[in-house]
Amino acid sequence: MSSQRPYLLRALYEWIADNGMTPHVLVDARMPGVRVPAHAVKDGRIVLNIAERAVAKLELGNDSIRFTARFAGVSQSVMVPLEAVIAIYSRETGQGMAMPDEPRTPPAAQADAVEIEQAAETPSGDATETPETPPEPPKRGGHLRIVK
């Protein structure tokens, strides 16, 4: 399945803007691919105002947020991979949402899973096999924080 992040981000952006509020995103600036002004980063994070009046050429894509904005009077290009977005919220009310963690299976683990499935399909001839225990459901990660 495709990631839910871009859809949630666009929906919340639209909801915040439609209600006359200012959308902000909290970004983990240490993530690979994040291009933001270094002088604006504090404790590895940056809050970006992505209101239509604050940015130019805003693109809320499926993989990243891209726009041009002024920082200390200098126009700069900004690019934020969606994996680096921690939350989107309204500056005025603080209402919004922390982005959910995406379940990721590394490619090597996927290959291992295929090999295990194939091995399970081949009869082993061993009558002492015990039935497998069902896998535990994935743990829900993350929690909401009030970001001011």
Rank of each mutant, 00 (worst) to 15 (best):
A38E: 15
I146W: 12
T22C: 08
E59D: 14
P81K: 03
S124M: 09
V78P: 05
E83D: 13
L60C: 00
K139T: 14
M79N: 13
P103N: 07
F67G: 00
K148M: 14
G96D: 03
T122H: 14
G20E: 08
T130C: 02
A84I: 07
K139R: 15
V55R: 02
P123S: 10
P37C: 07
A72F: 12
P37I: 00
E52Q: 14
A87N: 08
S90F: 08
S90W: 06
A87G: 02
S77Y: 10
A119R: 12
I46Q: 04
M21H: 11
L48E: 03
F71T: 05
Q4T: 13
V80H: 03
P135D: 07
Q95R: 11
Q110H: 12
A113K: 05
D63V: 09
S90Y: 10
V85N: 04
S124G: 14
L58D: 01
S90T: 10
E92T: 10
A120D: 09
V25F: 04
R140A: 12
T22L: 07
K57S: 12
R10T: 06
S75K: 11
P81C: 07
I50V: 12
R53G: 03
D112N: 08
V85I: 15
A98L: 06
I46V: 15
P81I: 05
T105I: 14
T128R: 11
M97G: 06
